[in-house]
Design a binder for these strands. Structure first.
Length: 787
DNA sequence: AGCACGCCGACT
DNA sequence: GTCGGCGTGCTC
């Protein structure tokens, strides 16, 4: 406003906005002390006073005068810059990427900035105790010149030779006690001891697994083998061209693991030849190690970066990436944020792996962040998988990505589908142990060959299905399995919350044999052991495999031929058992379909494809037996015919019809708290606010009140921007999670931007008006699991 | 998120 | 009395 000569002469910004690594949406404004003016840049790491503590934050904006949001008085000053070395400056690209994550996933920027900051050791909190010294314990009469307050404190401490915590000691009246206590310490009557206490409270529960990150046993190294020669040629041409193009491009690579490994090595080497660097992201720690082994086998050094490493090791990896001494970085989802410049290739290995999605705030999906990074860095993005996600197939179809499918049709086992409806009708374990299944096991055992049984344990939700035809009661609107509540004798859709009495007959065949699903399958292991008492049976699931070492132990047993039958869940596929079993069986393929999740068919199909890969090629006698009550299901048909496109096309049609991802964007809202009525009230209120938003923004009401039939799709004509649909609220399937009641709301929108804005605005309002802080409102953009 | 502060209740 | 466990409110 006014031109003050003094200011005109010194145009250095005197104020900065700082983002702090906390769950706070706002940034905070600080005064730059004169001696630091001119040294501060955007991305600069600074130490600032925040409440009672000093925190490291990141400068995101510079100002010449206090910005409008800042309080008039009471601005504090920056304490210092984190040293002047480059380590303490984030590049604009890193700051921007964290902001993108914050926006994309409706997460506080403060939480997201942590993703791009170098890992730091969690400072141990100290808990102060005070103990009486020998001198202090001596006869009271010998203490002269000790004040009244000091005497009182000392008397208390003398009764407690093990000492008293500071918090207890200074409870209530403070100032006088503090000085008295200080005096006692000064006089040597009392000592202070700082016992280190584990970092406070609710840190991530995972125990630190100490793995030697950099040296891998050779057995862990995955193999890399080229696809058929024509395809190998094609890959080399494609990847060379893309890398040379020096711009963003995206490829979808489908193939078996060894093929993908070979393609990865080729792509990485092509990238390195051009003087650019490589980032590989994968779902789990073991796989990261395996990929490092693949590179080691061809003489390329790769740097590992994952949560299994200690903070120190992670810090070192981060540093190595920054100074460009690491040309290949391999890691789990956190690695997408590694500071790698001159990035030429971003490879997502197992792009459909659900563990790429972070389940804590910020709930980012590493595949999507990888894509954004590649785009910003003008790098080549490769999404690789044995069974790509429908999201990626849609991108291919829309011309956003080029697909390379390298499959050797002679590699698969002989596939046999068994219709369970033809065998027994009771729900005992015996039902799924059909004669063909038992014969298959017996044959393999006789030839001393390996048997694998893949169980989809995830299917054991409380869901009804028909004992005769296998159909299950579904929500008319959402087409997901209805959850069965025995005590209320109700079924309820966990998507839209609609409830109705338990149907008395099957919706398809009118049979009266509706029963809870999976009741017999649980004991299959027992039944197998009983039937083949001499076989050596191993179990591979979440309970038996807790650490990578457990997986290695099972591997060793297998390699030594000490196991005849392996029974396991999804965990089987982490063992790298490809083409090892003569007989692979899926006793109850439909189990996974009963999860009330629109992706359950996709997961089932992926499981079947992976199971098939465990079997030897048909030419070597490999067999896969799939048992189902739904032999006409598109996942089964596609598997049996080897025509993946059959599955993809039908599943895409289904998703499009019902307006599910990837055709729409979904946002899951979670309301939780300790008192059920207020949680339910808040959840309903959120829905009302959202509907109000949509209403006022679009000028037309949307359908979908409780119990009112609503169209499955959107109102409006295709092409127009349609209104978001709001489903729910419905109590979360396991209504109580860690002592909290949870309700869920789903927002279905054309694009995630539209939904996000409304969700954020309404949450703000909700938080303002709900004075009870016990309530928590969480947002999950693009949720990957519906439970 | 983390921290202080205050209140409750379990265990000496 | 001691101390852990929450709920609440605040952070330039």
């Amino acid at each position: 406003m006014r031109n003050q000569p003094v200011q005109a002469a010194a145009p250095l910004p005197g104020y900065v906005d700082v983002v702090l690594p906390r769950r706070l949406d706002r940034s905070f404004t600080y005064i730059v002390p004169t001696e630091l003016r001119g040294q501060i840049v955007i991305g600069q790491s600074v130490i600032v006073p925040f409440g009672t503590q000093d925190l490291q934050g990141v400068v995101i904006a510079l100002h010449h005068r206090p910005p409008s949001g800042a309080p008039e008085a009471g601005l504090k000053s920056l304490r210092s810059c984190g040293e002047t070395s480059l380590d303490h400056v984030l590049t604009p690209a890193q700051v921007e990427l964290s902001r993108w994550v914050a926006e994309r996933y409706a997460a506080p920027w403060g939480q997201c900035i942590k993703l791009v900051l170098p890992p730091v050791e969690q400072p141990r909190r100290l808990q102060a105790r005070y103990l009486p010294t020998a001198h202090g314990l001596a006869d009271l009469s010998t203490h002269s010149g000790v004040g009244e307050d000091e005497m009182r404190l000392l008397a208390r401490l003398r009764r407690r030779p093990k000492g008293i915590m500071e918090r207890t000691l200074l409870q209530g009246d403070t100032s006088s006690s503090v000085t008295a206590l200080r005096a006692l310490v000064r006089k040597g009557l009392v000592v202070r001891s700082d016992a280190a206490v584990a970092p406070t409270g609710t840190r991530r529960g995972k125990k630190l697994v100490l793995t030697t990150g950099l040296s891998l046993p050779m057995e862990e190294a995955g193999e890399a083998s080229p696809p058929l020669s024509a395809e190998a040629q094609s890959w080399l041409m494609v990847i060379d061209k893309q890398v040379a193009a020096d711009g963003y491009s995206a490829l979808l690579l489908e193939g078996e693991r060894a093929t993908r490994h070979w393609c990865l090595v080729q792509a990485a080497q092509a990238t390195l030849r051009r003087g650019r660097r490589v980032l590989v992201v994968t779902g789990d720690v073991e796989n990261a190690g395996r990929l490092a082994g693949v590179f080691a086998a061809v003489g390329e050094q790769a740097m590992l970066l994952h949560s299994g490493l200690s903070v120190k090791e992670r810090e070192a990896a981060w540093q190595a990436a920054r100074v460009a001494s690491a040309t290949i970085v391999i890691g789990t989802r956190m690695a997408v944020f590694a500071p790698i410049d001159r990035l030429g290739l971003v490879w997502v290995e197992g792009e459909d792996d659900t563990s790429l999605k972070e389940e804590q705030v910020p709930r980012y999906h590493a595949r999507d962040v990888a894509q954004e990074r590649a785009r910003r860095d003008r790098a080549v993005l490769v999404l690789a998988s044995n069974h790509p996600s429908l999201e990626s197939w849609l991108a291919v179809r829309q011309g956003l990505m080029m697909a390379c499918v390298y499959r050797n049709p002679t590699q698969g086992p002989k596939i046999q589908v068994i219709d369970l409806k033809a065998y027994g009708r009771d729900s005992s374990a015996g039902t799924v142990l059909t004669p063909p299944l038992c014969e298959g096991i017996r044959d393999a055992l006789q030839q001393r060959l390996l048997v694998v049984l893949f169980l989809n344990r995830k299917g054991f939700a409380s869901v009804l299905h028909c004992g005769d035809c296998g159909a299950m009661p579904q929500c008319d609107v959402c087409s997901v399995a209805l959850t069965f509540f025995r005590h209320r004798s109700q079924v309820r859709c966990h998507f839209c919350g609609r409830a109705k009495p338990v149907p008395d007959h099957c919706p398809r065949c009118r049979s009266l044999k509706l029963e809870p699903v999976g009741s017999g399958t649980e004991r299959i292991e027992e039944a197998v052991r009983r039937m083949f008492p001499l076989a050596r049976v191993g179990r591979v699931d979440g309970e038996t495999i807790r650490r990578p070492a457990d997986a290695r132990a099972v591997r060793r047993l297998l390699d030594a031929g000490e196991l005849d039958i392996v029974i396991g869940t999804q965990m089987l596929f982490r063992l790298a058992l490809q083409a090892k079993a003569a007989f692979v069986a899926v006793p109850d393929a439909d189990a996974g379909l009963h999860i009330p999740d629109f992706r359950s068919a996709e997961r089932m199909y992926h499981g079947l494809v992976d199971a098939a890969d465990l079997a030897l090629p048909a030419t070597a006698g490999g067999r896969l037996l799939v048992q189902t009550r739904l032999p006409d299901h598109h996942a089964i048909l596609a598997l049996a015919s080897g025509k993946e496109e059959l599955f993809v096309a039908q599943e895409q049609a289904f998703r499009q019809l019902l307006q599910y991802p990837p055709w729409t964007s979904l946002i899951r809202l979670d309301v939780s708290g300790t008192a059920e009525p207020s949680v339910a009230r808040a959840a309903h209120r959120w829905v009302a606010l959202l509907r109000g938003q949509v209403f006022s923004a679009q000028g037309a009401p949307i359908s979908g009140g409780h119990g009112v039939p609503q169209p499955a799709g959107f109102a409006g004509v295709a092409g127009e921007s349609r209104q978001p649909l709001i489903l729910g609220p419905s109590p979360a399937p396991h209504a109580m999670v860690r002592g909290r009641y949870c309700y869920q709301i789903l927002v279905k929108a054309d694009s995630s931007e539209g939904g996000r804005a409304a969700v954020l605005r309404t949450r703000e309002e909700l938080e303002r008006e709900s004075r009870q802080g016990a309530l928590r409102f969480e947002i999950d953009v693009d949720p990957v699991s519906m439970t």
